[in-house]
């Protein structure tokens, strides 16, 4: 087997709420390999989002280490993390992913504004990403003119437009009806199968989980024994 793309060891995250300590993650170990489609499941409040946020470099662990693509996130400054995210991570949230004042095209172009690509190159990249999610005919639409499923697909296009190392999705189908959810999941599956993108997805939905190649089950901040790394 190849080198792990994401390597997490003894990762803990403690939130201080008033005088109460909430241990969202408790010494978690995890390895994700290039080309994996990982699904993270578990009841609400079990720490799924927290884990994903730490891997995405938008939150920091209390203890333990996170190494993604050979780089240790623990040591990076805020600005280094920002640049790193732009380069390595594509993020899809559950809702309100898109900037309402920008068109689908402009939303997808946003992360490219931070790169040194020319306007023409940006246009090409955006078009390619929109093709992959099947929305080339919706480029000039504003988010409010899109359906929930289309919005999520635009968000996926934005997540992959920089050709990141991994795509992280936090309940991307949580707000969608079954049909739209399937469309979104098919897009993710296609990315994983055809383009060998590494995908990590949080979901509640067993149907969604069925798309993944590996499944993790979180319970109160730790992986439950039977669920820890279950390869389909």
């Amino acid at each position: 087997m190849s080198e792990p793309l994401i390597e997490i060891s003894a990762l803990s995250k403690v939130f201080q709420r008033d005088s109460v300590e909430v241990r969202a993650l408790d010494r978690v170990d995890m390895q994700v390999f290039p080309g994996d489609f990982v699904c993270l499941m578990g009841p609400s409040g079990s720490g799924k989002s927290t884990l994903l946020n730490i891997i995405a470099g938008v939150d920091r662990p209390s203890e333990g280490s996170v190494i993604v693509a050979g780089e240790s996130l623990n040591e990076m400054s805020e600005d280094e993390l920002a640049a790193w995210r732009n380069h390595h991570v594509g993020f899809v949230f559950q809702h309100f992913n898109l900037i309402p004042v920008l068109t689908a095209f402009e939303n997808v172009e946003l992360p490219l504004l931070l790169t040194s690509l020319s306007k023409k190159e940006r246009r090409e990249h955006v078009t390619t990403a929109m093709e992959l999610v099947g929305l080339t005919d919706r480029m000039d639409h504003y988010p409010r003119q899109l359906s929930g499923g289309q919005e999520q697909r635009v968000a996926i296009a934005r997540a992959i437009v920089t050709d990141p190392t991994c795509v992280l999705a936090d309940e991307p189908t949580g707000d969608l009806d079954a049909h739209s959810a399937r469309e979104v999941l098919e897009v993710l599956k296609g990315l994983n199968e055809q383009f060998k993108k590494t995908i990590m997805m949080v979901t509640h939905d067993p149907h969604a989980a069925a798309y993944a190649s590996t499944r993790y089950q979180l319970e109160k901040g730790v992986f439950s024994k039977e669920g820890a790394r279950q390869t389909v």
């Binding site: 732009n86 992360p111 931070l114």
Partner: peptide, 16 residues
Amino acid sequence: TREIGILKALGFRRSQ
């Protein structure tokens, strides 16, 4: 606030 969070998640630096 949330939109600004998204921008940062996309890689916008604080100074930007």
